[in-house]
């Protein structure tokens, strides 16, 4: 356990001594602020519209804070698609490039400890990113009374989604010595997992449609955003994460064989 913590600590220090952490954090916070503002404006507009409609058709209940958080946190999931590869690209590729992988793999550590140390370092940074979204979300609590349930499930969904993305990026960074290639490959892979959704819309048979929809990494977030907790979605993200971690572990093993 101490070994894993040592790796996590070193990795986090590395994030924050290189410009990567600051660039990623800045861009993420800036984009999330921008989207929050535009979603807020949109929902306010809708609120006004429905007030006008209400004069003709009678009053209708409208959960405005809920619409804002839902819209905002769904958008975050898309921004994370772009940001996560930047967090995971260097995790193993840099070790390979600098030869420090030889230090890790000849230290009295198991390969699993190395993989988990790297993984949780990425996850920790991801959680820091996620926490920054509490600034706008928290603001809603100052000016309104949003239902906390859907917000909590939305965050749980984003967390599971982030774990899966980190694991995928981690695996891909074991495949190359080049950070850029790792980032582009991770991005491509995540995009494919995202866009199978679009393919699903054009699918002919209902079975293939169901399969493709199931594979889509974003479609599983919808229920979390609506405040619905469903084990099938939790299992989807957990199994995606476990498969990617297992592949990482195997990739390190094959790295040893190939030298």
């Amino acid at each position: 356990m101490r070994n894993i913590l040592a790796i996590i600590e070193r990795e986090l220090r590395a994030y924050f001594t290189s410009p990567i952490a600051y660039v990623v954090l800045t861009i993420f916070v800036f984009l999330s602020g921008l989207f929050f503002r535009s979603i807020l404006a949109q929902v306010l507009q809708m609120g006004l519209m429905s007030q006008l409609q209400a004069q003709q058709l009678g009053p209708r209940a409208m959960d405005m804070p809920g619409m804002i958080t839902r819209g905002f946190l769904s958008t975050m999931s898309v921004i994370l698609l772009f940001v996560m590869p930047m967090l995971t690209m260097g995790l193993f590729s840099e070790e390979k490039k600098r030869g420090t992988i030889e230090l890790l793999l000849t230290a009295p550590l198991t390969d699993l400890q190395v993989v988990l140390g790297k993984f949780f370092a990425g996850v920790t940074f991801f959680i820091i990113l996620l926490l920054t979204t509490w600034i706008p979300t928290g603001m809603l609590y100052l000016y309104s009374t949003p239902a906390s349930g859907p917000i909590l499930t939305a965050y749980l969904g984003l967390l599971l989604y982030g774990l899966a993305l980190t694991a995928i990026g981690l695996f891909i960074s074991t495949l190359t010595e080049n950070q850029i290639i790792a980032a582009v490959l991770s991005f491509g892979t995540i995009m494919v997992l995202w866009l199978v959704d679009v393919l699903a819309n054009n699918a002919e048979s209902s079975t293939s449609k169901a399969v493709l929809t199931y594979l889509s990494i974003l479609s599983h977030l919808d229920d979390f955003m609506k405040g619905v907790l469903s084990t099938s979605h939790i299992i989807f993200y957990m199994s995606l994460m476990l498969v990617a971690l297992f592949l990482t572990y195997r990739s390190i093993d094959s790295l040893r064989w190939r030298g």
Binding site: R10, T17, R98, G99, I101, L103, A107
Partner: peptide
């Protein structure tokens, strides 16, 4: 190893502390 396995962004003492930790 043939190429010393160093993390260029770390300080000498910080690096050695890290190695001490992973060596238990």
């Amino acid at each position: 190893p043939e190429n010393p396995p160093l993390y260029p962004e770390m300080t000498v003492a910080g690096y050695l502390r890290f190695v001490a930790k992973i060596k238990g």
